[in-house]
Amino acid sequence: MAHLKQQFKDALSSIEPGDDKANAPEAHRLVRDALEADTKLTEYGVDPVLIGSYKRSVSIKRVKDVDVFVRLPDLPSDVTSKDILDRFFIVCGRGRARFTL
């Protein structure tokens, strides 16, 4: 039975974020700052929230991403999902910000 307990502890240590979790708040801050600095997204009331595996403490180790949910409460009805995704791509992908941790 002691052997199974150790195997279970070893398995948990392989998937729990441990020290890697410290990267999530910094990654989220970088993404949040970039999104909130964009004038168009600011017009839409951009409100990013950290979500996903780091938030729930269930991450696989060495994950190099951060999940962010973005609320846009002031989004006009004529703005399409393609417009928003293109804007995010510009801000977080090819635009001012490149994120590496």
Rank of each mutant, 00 (worst) to 15 (best):
V66K: 02
F69M: 11
D67E: 10
K55I: 02
V68A: 04
R71H: 10
S59Q: 12
V68D: 02
L50Y: 02
L50F: 04
L72D: 04
V66R: 00
L72I: 14
S57W: 14
L72K: 12
V66C: 07
V58Y: 01
G45L: 08
V66Q: 03
P73D: 09
D74E: 15
I51L: 04
P48K: 09
I60Y: 09
L75N: 03
G52R: 07
G45D: 07
F69P: 00
V63S: 12
V46H: 03
L72P: 05
K55L: 06
V49I: 15
D47E: 14
I60N: 06
K61Y: 00
P48V: 13
V58F: 01
V66I: 15
R71C: 01
L75I: 10
R71K: 15
Y54H: 09
Y54N: 05
I60W: 10
I51Q: 05
G45Q: 10
R71Y: 13
K55T: 10
P48W: 08
V63R: 09
D65Y: 00
K61Q: 14
Y44W: 15
G52E: 05
D65F: 00
V49A: 09
K55G: 00
L75Y: 00
S57E: 13
L75V: 06
V66L: 06
P76I: 08
R62P: 00
S53L: 14
K55C: 07
P76R: 15
P76L: 13
L50Q: 07
V49C: 05
G52W: 04
R71F: 12
K64N: 13
R71N: 07
D74N: 15
I51P: 00
P73Y: 13
V46M: 06
D65H: 03
V58C: 05
L75K: 14
V70K: 03
R62S: 12
R71Q: 10
K55A: 13
I51A: 04
S59D: 13
R62W: 10
L50G: 01
K61T: 08
V70A: 01
R56W: 04
R62H: 15
F69N: 03
R56S: 05
K61R: 14
G45V: 04
L72R: 13
V58S: 07
L72Q: 11
S57V: 14
R71A: 12
P76S: 09
K64V: 02
I51G: 01
K64F: 04
P48T: 11
G52I: 11
D65N: 05
Y44N: 03
G45M: 09
P48S: 09
